Amino acid sequence: MDPSYFTQVGKVLVPTLLTDFGVQIAGWSISAFLQTEKFYDLAGSTSFVLCTFISLYKPWDENSIWADGMSPNALLRAIHPRQIIASGTTVVWAAYLGSFLFSRVLNHGDKRFDKVKKVPGRFLIYWLVQGIWVALTALPVYMTNSIPASVHPDLGLQDYIGIALWGLGFAFQVIANYQKQKWRKEIGRDYKRSFISTGLWSLSRHPNYFGECLLWFGSYLVCSSAFSAALESPAPIMSHWMSRLAVFSPMFVTFLITRVSGIPLLERENDRRLKDVVAYWKYKKATSMFVPTLPRRNVE
């Protein structure tokens, strides 16, 4: 077998991804038995946190930062600031999104699972797809955590740009979700015949999704700063095909949200629910679907 399959990054990715899919199988088993979708998003965010933790700390490795007797100074030297930033931002995002979605599903349920949650085989597919989502979305984070701190270059301009993009994207997602929650609470029972068009929602029909895609592009920029150094290292740390695969992470997130499970589903649902609401169609015509822009004027 090609030795590139046995690089240090590859050895870390295997247990990390096994953890990911182990969480999905466990979550599916419980949820299929109870015929509930309430744990789906919570399992997804838990997977992100556990996979990030495992890729960084490598608890199975006797030379990892879990090693007995490691001094605080040695512990700090074993983790590069880039790894702290990549891991910390991932955990913060996962904790936020997981709690937000879990609260929402408790209050409103999730129509996606109305039929499949009673058919274990079909229900399992949703959980496996979530496992793929967890694996590919944060793949650059798991990879950069797998690279020894001694190999990482110092933080530079690319890292700071990535951090800024992540911060902007996270702010967009949090603020947009808050604005929609507040609007929905204020609108009450009229929700099904109305729509939000204020705040960030006046700049984009899906500002929360734009924020999520932007933050993962930022995360990739931070993580990828270490890939070149890892490829140039004389030790087999990372293979070229792995570094190329990582670039698909933010592209995958954007494709999934804009073409598959995010925006298309909501657009179809809103078009159906608001088909007789003239103001909605004017808003849709005047407002960008994804990237925030100033609304077009004089739209009839």
Score class of each variant (00 low, 15 high):
2 D>S: 15
2 D>W: 14
5 Y>I: 10
8 Q>Y: 14
8 Q>W: 14
11 K>R: 11
14 V>F: 11
17 L>E: 12
17 L>W: 12
20 D>L: 01
21 F>L: 13
25 I>P: 14
28 W>K: 05
31 S>K: 01
34 L>E: 08
35 Q>R: 08
42 L>Y: 05
46 T>K: 00
47 S>D: 00
52 T>Y: 00
53 F>I: 13
55 S>M: 00
56 L>T: 05
58 K>G: 06
61 D>P: 11
62 E>K: 14
63 N>W: 07
64 S>W: 08
66 W>L: 08
69 G>F: 04
80 H>R: 02
85 I>K: 06
85 I>S: 08
86 A>G: 11
87 S>C: 10
87 S>I: 10
99 S>Y: 07
100 F>V: 10
105 V>Y: 07
106 L>K: 10
107 N>C: 07
113 F>E: 05
117 K>V: 05
118 K>Y: 14
120 P>C: 09
121 G>H: 13
122 R>C: 12
127 W>L: 10
129 V>M: 10
131 G>R: 03
137 T>H: 08
145 N>R: 02
146 S>H: 06
149 A>E: 04
151 V>Y: 04
152 H>M: 02
159 D>N: 11
160 Y>N: 06
160 Y>V: 06
161 I>V: 11
164 A>W: 03
168 L>T: 05
172 F>H: 01
184 R>K: 15
189 R>G: 11
209 Y>K: 03
214 L>E: 00
220 Y>E: 11
228 S>F: 02
229 A>W: 04
230 A>Y: 06
231 L>C: 01
238 M>G: 03
243 S>V: 13
245 L>F: 09
245 L>W: 03
246 A>S: 14
254 T>K: 03
255 F>Q: 05
264 P>K: 14
266 L>P: 00
267 E>G: 02
271 D>G: 10
273 R>D: 13
280 Y>W: 11
281 W>T: 15
285 K>H: 05
286 A>M: 01
289 M>K: 10
295 P>S: 09
298 N>D: 15
